[in-house]
C-alpha cells in the first residue's frame, strides 16, 4: 500500500525519473490535448504544404499544410486513450474470466485455460487484422480487435494470483466464518492481485500502443485526417524523401511513449513483484 503514500517511490535512477516524467507529460497532454495545441490539427492550409520546421510551425507542416506539432500533440489523445481503453476493457474481461475460472475449478477451469493458452499463442497482429477486416476499418474496430486478441494474458495472470490467494490460511478462516463469495473476491482477491496486475498493465501499454499505431499504419485503424500517430506516418510516407519531418516526429512520439512506459513498468516490476523479490 506504500504506493498510495508516495507515488514515485519506485523510480530510482535519473533515467527512470525522466521516463516517469515523460509518462506523466503524455498523460497530461492526452487530457489537455485540444486546449494547448497551437493550431487546429485537422486545419488544411495548401499554401503551407510540406513547409519545413520554422518558428511558427516548430515541427513543420504535412502534405495538406496541417501543423505537425498540433497533430502530434492531439495524437497523444487518440493513441493513448485508445491504448488505455483496450487495456481497461481487457483487464476487466480477463480478470472476470480468470477469477471465475479459479473459483470454479475442475473441468470449467481446465477448458477455459486451454482456450486461453491456445488463443494467447496466435500472432496478435494477424488476429487483430482478421477482426478489423470483419468489422470494417476504423479506430473502434482496431480497439475491439486488440481487445479480442489480448484478454487471455489477464485471464491467465488473474487465475494464477487467485489460486495462490485461495491457498492461503486466511481464506480457510474466511470459509469457516461463512464469508460470501463476492466479499472474498472484492476484499481478499482483488487487493492482493493489485500489485501484479499493475505491473502487467504498465508493461502492456507499449505493446498495445505499438499494435494500435501499426494497425492504423496499414490502414485498418484510425483514418486520415484523424491525428493518430500511425496513420500520420502512413500519410507522410509519400513525402518522406523531401519532407522527413512528416514521418520522423510522429514516429519519435510513439518511440518515446513506448520506451517510457516500458522503463516505468520495469521499475514497478523490480520494486513490486513478489516473484522477483524472492529470487
Amino acid at each position: 500500500m506504500k504506493s498510495f503514500l508516495n507515488l514515485t517511490f519506485f523510480v530510482k535512477s535519473p533515467f527512470e525519473k525522466l521516463a516517469l516524467g515523460i509518462v506523466v507529460f503524455i498523460i497530461l497532454i492526452s487530457i489537455l490535448g485540444d486546449f494547448i495545441v497551437p493550431y487546429d490539427p485537422t486545419q488544411i492550409d495548401f499554401r503551407g504544404k510540406l513547409q519545413p520546421p520554422s518558428l511558427e510551425h516548430p515541427l513543420g507542416q504535412d502534405g495538406a499544410g496541417r501543423d505537425v506539432l498540433s497533430r502530434v500533440l492531439s495524437g497523444a489523445r487518440l493513441t493513448v486513450l485508445s491504448t488505455f481503453t483496450v487495456i481497461f476493457v481487457v483487464l476487466v474481461i480477463g480478470c472476470t474470466i480468470g477469477i471465475f475460472s479459479a473459483f470454479a475449478g475442475g473441468w470449467i477451469d481446465n477448458i477455459l485455460m486451454r482456450i486461453a493458452d491456445i488463443w494467447l499463442g496466435f500472432p496478435p497482429l494477424i488476429l487483430a487484422l482478421g477482426f478489423a477486416a470483419a468489422l470494417g476499418a476504423s479506430l473502434e474496430a482496431a480497439i475491439w480487435a486488440l481487445i479480442f486478441s489480448w484478454w487471455p494474458n489477464y485471464a491467465r495472470l488473474s487465475r494464477m494470483i487467485t489460486l495462490d490467494i485461495l491457498s492461503k490460511p486466511f481464506i480457510a478462516g474466511a470459509e469457516v466464518l461463512g464469508v460470501p463469495l463476492w466479499r472474498k473476491v472484492t476484499f481478499y482477491v482483488l487487493p492482493n492481485a493489485f500489485d501484479v496486475l499493475i505491473i502487467q498493465v504498465a508493461l502492456d501499454v507499449s505493446a498495445v500502443m505499438l499494435s494500435i499505431s501499426g494497425l492504423s499504419f496499414i490502414g485498418v485503424g484510425a483514418q486520415i485526417p484523424a491525428p493518430e500517430w500511425g496513420s500520420m506516418i502512413a500519410d507522410g510516407r509519400a513525402h518522406m524523401s523531401t519532407a522527413w519531418w512528416v514521418v520522423v516526429f510522429p514516429g519519435l512520439a510513439i518511440f518515446f511513449s513506448a520506451l517510457s512506459f516500458n522503463v516505468v513498468g520495469d521499475a514497478l516490476r523490480r520494486e513490486l513483484d513478489p516473484l522477483l523479490r524472492r529470487v
Partner: peptide
Amino acid sequence: AMIGAGLPIFWTALILQNVIGG
C-alpha cells in the same frame, strides 16, 4: 533491448529504407 522494444517496426523500416537505402 529497451530501445528495440519501443521502436515501431513500420517506422524503423521506413527510416532505414530512406537513410541506408535512399
